[in-house]
Structures are given as C-alpha cells and as structure tokens.
Design a protein around this nucleic acid. Structure first.
Lengths: 163, 163
DNA sequence: GAAGATTGACACGTCAATCTTT
DNA sequence: AAAGATTGACGTGTCAATCTTC
C-alpha cells in the first residue's frame, strides 16, 4: 500500500467533490474565455454586457450590477471604466438621487454581443450543455440552483417577491 | 412587454446554464476561501498542499503538479515559492535529471492541513455537499466528471491505464 | 453621518523571454 | 535544440480609504 492513508481526513469524499467542482469549472471557464478573447472580449466584460442587455432599459445601477455579477463593487467600477472607454457602455447619473449611476449598454455594445454570441453559444454547448444528455442536464441545472440559493441568497429569483 | 426580447440569442438557455455555473461556483468558492483564509491559508496554497499530501512520497514534479492544479506552470512556481518560505514545502532536485524539481510537503505542511481540514470539511458540507440529498449529490458528481472528461482530458483517471 | 461610487496601494496569476540541464 | 523551471513585465481584481450627495 502507498503512503496515502496516513491522514484519514485526506480521503474524505467531500474533498473530492470540491476538487471536482473546482477543476470542472476552471476547465469550462478556460475554454469559454479563450473563445471570447479571440473575439476581443474579456470574460468579465462579457458578463457585464450580457446582464445589461438582458435588463429592462438595457441598464442597471452599479451596485445591483455588482451584486448580480461575480465582481466586487470596485472591481465592477474598473470593468465599466474600460467598457466606457471602448464605447460599449454609458454611465448615466440618476436625476433625483445624484449619488446613483446606471451603466447602460450602447448600440455598439449590443452589436458586439451580436457578433460574439453565436460562437460563444457554440462553445458553451461543446464544453458544457452538450456534454450531458437532456435529463442529466436538467438535474445538473436544478442542483446548481439549489446550491446557489444557499451560497448566494441575493440572486435567488424566488426572493424577488414584491410586497 | 419589456425590452428583453429584442435579441433572441440573449434568451438562450445555454446562457442561463453557463451563468448559473459561474455564479454557483464563485459563491461556493468565496465561502470556502474565506474559511481557509481565516486559518491563514490561501485557496491556491491549500490546493497545492492537499495534492502533495495525497501523493505517494508526499511530493510531485512541478510540471505534474501544475497540470493537476488550477494553476499555470509559472503560477505554481510562485505559490511554491511562498509555501517554501513559510516552511510548508521543500523543493528537491532530482538526482538523475537535474532539470527536474519535486515539491514535497513538510511535516509543518501536514500539520497545517491537519489544523485546517476539520473546519474546511464542515464549510464544504455547508456550502456544497450538504445542500443536496444523496441521490442528487451522486448525480451532480457524475455530471461533473462527465464534463471534466471533456474540458480537462488530462485529469481523467480512466486515462491512467499503464502500457 | 450614512449610502453610492470611485481611487490608491497591493497581491495574485499569466504570458513571453530566459536560464539551465539534457 | 528541446525540456523543465523560473523571472520580468503586465493586466486584473480586492480591500480600505476617500469623495460626493443625500
């Protein structure tokens, strides 16, 4: 036998699962990012643009955008800076409350998405959605939702109830 | 109706799945990293230490270690630098081929893992494995393996066949 | 004085170039 | 000249401090 069993905790299956999640996601991410960057878009930039495009009025307040995205508040500022310089996003100051800024995707930004999406979707399909068959995929997505509800409660759509 | 439907590709379910994977993993990772860092270990450092501890002789060549981990070759050099300075890892030059170095976890490194693991496992359980019930978890892990086989072929245990 | 957003200082990881050994 | 590993220059994101508006 090898030297592997000397610390029983090292054999814990939770460690394996965690490792698997890390490796898998980093693998998928590497492939998808590489495709995006061939088209001149950073992963973070793409994430922001997509969220803006899918929002009503094509815009969101900085804070909300940060909460929805993978980025911190200040990280988002930086990304929007770059997107702004490139002409893909505008910053619009709120009229009533002038502390608030909205990031709004421009026509150029929408055009950029338009250009990138076909290849992006194909890549996602190759590296992720197309790998599982439909029932597996459905179960996988359901599991992800369940986990997200725990680790990122803010993003849960079930909480959007108004009152 | 809102402004959401103006670009049909934006509604593609593959986009949703991809976003879900990103958010979920970043959420889990944030929680787990925060726990590790309270105990004075970086996520990358932990990843490296765990892999070394689980390897025969408690060591691996730099290149192999990089291939197995989330890090690039040079990124790994940097992490091992820090771990070395802290006394958790030794670099050992190969006797026959002196281009090759092995990173080997020290007793202090093993002790560190020992100290950190209980809390880490509990955190992983809270944020990931404990969220799903057993059948769900099994299916989830199976799906991850399937995806990893595609996006990171090198890491597949089925390829470890000898000859 | 607290909320919204930005900035400065810094830590980390990557790519391309380099050094050493084969 | 190719393989293994490291280093220099750089881009990106974070935390804490700051500025502005409420």
């Amino acid at each position: 036998m090898g030297e592997r069993g000397d610390l029983p905790l090292l054999q814990d299956p939770r460690l394996t699962t965690m490792g698997l999640l890390l490796e898998t996601q980093s693998g998928v991410r590497a492939i998808v990012e590489s495709d995006l960057e061939e088209h001149g878009v950073t992963a973070s930039a793409f994430e922001v643009l997509i969220r803006l495009a899918r929002s009503p009025d094509h815009g969101l307040r900085m804070t909300e955008l940060a909460a929805q995205s993978t980025l911190s508040n200040s990280g988002l500022t930086r990304v929007v800076d770059r997107l702004g310089e490139a002409g893909y996003v505008d910053r619009i100051q709120h009229e009533q409350d002038r502390r608030v800024f909205h990031a709004v995707i421009t026509d150029a930004g929408l055009a950029l998405l338009h250009k990138v999406l076909p290849s992006h979707l194909a890549t996602v399909d190759e590296a992720l959605t197309g790998v599982l068959d439909p029932e597996e995929l459905a179960a996988f997505v359901a599991a992800l939702r369940k986990i997200r509800r725990v680790v990122k409660p803010g993003a849960d759509p079930a909480l959007t109830a108004r009152t």
